[in-house]
Design a protein around this nucleic acid. Structure first.
Length: 437
RNA sequence: GUGGCCGUAGAUCAAUGGUAGAUCACCUGACUGUGACUCAGGGUGUUGUGGGUUCGAGCCCCAUCGGUCACCCCA
């Protein structure tokens, strides 16, 4: 029989690992909402042309990484490889621009790229991202980067580098590319053109996307481009003023960052400010980009918007962020506050009713449904990490009490049914050692 | 798409070509109504799969599937 298993590169997420994800999602949502972002939900599937037009036909994503299939009516559909295209499509389709001056949206969900899986890179991966639409001000770029810095701090990830660059707009880039090409075609220290000594992939990039040559990991490439002209020296006045304002604002906001003139993004729609947050923790492999983003001032127009709608956005990879957070997954889980164990049918039924009542008041309560030995019921309660165990047997049932055992202290005392909730409430005020979500 | 490494118990890993094991986890008991500690027991396995070589294969050979890491690229 054929073994049933998940599709390659698409992972199941099981407890207690899922608790760590919830921690990330909860914190991220809270922060995004604090900055005025509201959630948008768009389909996982979009017309293929949307991504081809938004991301760029020459990008790796569109060229070879899309999950594309033919619908029953013959139209070509694609599982979204990123979130911005769909968000912008929705923004235009619902004519949001006409209803509000500027728009702040965030999204969260799975993305799909048909790549070879490795550590930190999967075919289905989750991103949380945000878009600030119709907001041209450089302070918006800076505010977004500041928010991200705050997010990583809130998640307990200290080991990050915030990299910022400006890749210029349509008016800047041709000039820079010409300068870069001239540099590469000029003879190097040894008299031969640098170009001929570049790695094969970098030579190929010269025509396709010369900026990426700067991003190469090949040691020879790095050495050859060490003295290459910087995009930052080839910006027009408008781009330069914008970028300077972004940097100034970041300093005012106290954000630690590095300007990296070699920082490039893989999606064609970026213009002007780009940024990336790189992790350095041991949980990451070679794929250490936790978050990437930047300005895309022309994208809305490209997708059919009337007039200019400057925008800036980012997305971070949930898998990579989770992998960067120190701490055992189990320590992020919400253990029951009370486990009810029993001896005898009547007691068990009583427990079930009590549990239901307490759960209705918002407590996390577990009931052991088995008629197992007290020992094995206690064992289970311990394994669940319960703060308290309520023991109910025939004796207690008759007396109208139950034994409330504090598992941390190893002490127990008889309490009436009405005293259970106050005891739980008191424990909440002075919690033991719990992560709060 | 290219390359390296690895597939043995739930997990992490041992086992000159000669009876498949350890540790942790798990279960039972000591304690017939009390966890975590201690002690005494218990192996829970299609050695990924299919073929080949051999008297004999977890080990050698071929194929295949899967995992993993890296390149490319990116979150």
């Amino acid at each position: 029989m054929e073994r049933l298993q998940a599709v390659k590169g698409m992972n199941d997420l099981l407890p207690p690992e899922s608790a760590k994800w919830q921690f990330v999602e909860t914190r991220a949502r809270a922060l995004l909402e604090a900055y005025g972002y509201r959630e948008v939900r768009t389909p996982l599937v979009e017309p293929t042309t949307l991504f081809a037009r938004a991301i760029g036909v020459a990008t790796d994503i569109v060229e070879k990484e899309m999950y594309t299939f033919t619908d029953r009516d013959g139209s070509s559909l694609t599982l979204r490889p990123e979130g911005t295209a769909g968000a912008v499509r929705a923004y235009l389709e619902h004519q949001v621009a006409g209803r509000e001056g500027h728009t702040r949206w965030y999204y969260s969900g799975p993305m799909y790229r048909h790549e070879r899986a490795q550590k930190g890179r999967y075919r289905q991966f989750f991103q949380i991202g945000a878009e600030a639409l119709n907001q041209p001000e450089p302070t918006v770029d800076a505010e977004m980067i500041a928010m991200l810095a705050q997010l990583f701090t809130a998640l307990g990830i200290d080991d990050v580098d915030v990299l910022v660059n400006c890749v210029g707009g349509a008016e800047d880039r041709p000039k820079y590319m010409a300068a870069l090409r001239a540099y590469l075609e000029a003879p190097g220290p040894d008299g031969a053109p640098r170009l001929s000594r570049l790695s094969e992939t970098s030579q190929r990039r010269l025509d396709k996307n010369p900026l990426r040559i700067l991003d190469s990991k090949d040691p020879t490439d790095i050495a050859l481009t060490a003295e290459a002209p910087s995009i930052l020296d080839h910006l027009g006045d408008a781009s330069k003023a914008h970028f300077d304002a972004v940097l100034a604002t970041l300093r005012e906001l106290g954000v630690k960052f590095t300007v990296d003139a070699r920082l490039v993004r893989g999606l064609d729609y970026y213009t002007g400010t780009v940024f990336e947050v790189r992790g350095r923790g041991p949980g990451l492999g070679a794929q250490n980009a936790l978050c990437g983003g930047g300005r895309y001032d022309a994208l809305v127009e490209t997708l059919g918007g009337a007039g200019k709608t400057p925008a800036v956005g980012f997305a971070f990879g949930v898998e990579r962020v989770v992998a960067s957070i120190p701490g055992e997954p189990a320590s992020f889980a919400q253990a029951p506050e009370l486990c009810l164990v029993s001896h005898g049918d009547a007691a068990r039924r009583f427990n079930l009713a009590l549990a239901q009542e307490l759960r209705g008041r918002g407590y996390r309560v577990d009931v052991d449904h088995r008629s197992a030995s007290m020992k094995s019921q206690m064992k289970r309660a311990d394994k669940l990490g319960a703060r308290f165990v309520g023991v109910l047997g025939e004796d207690e049932l008759q007396k109208g009490i139950l034994m409330l055992r504090d598992m941390g202290a190893g002490e127990q005392r008889p309490v009436t049914r009405a005293e259970v909730e106050p005891a739980l409430a008191a424990a909440r005020i002075s919690p033991t050692v719990k992560q709060e979500a």
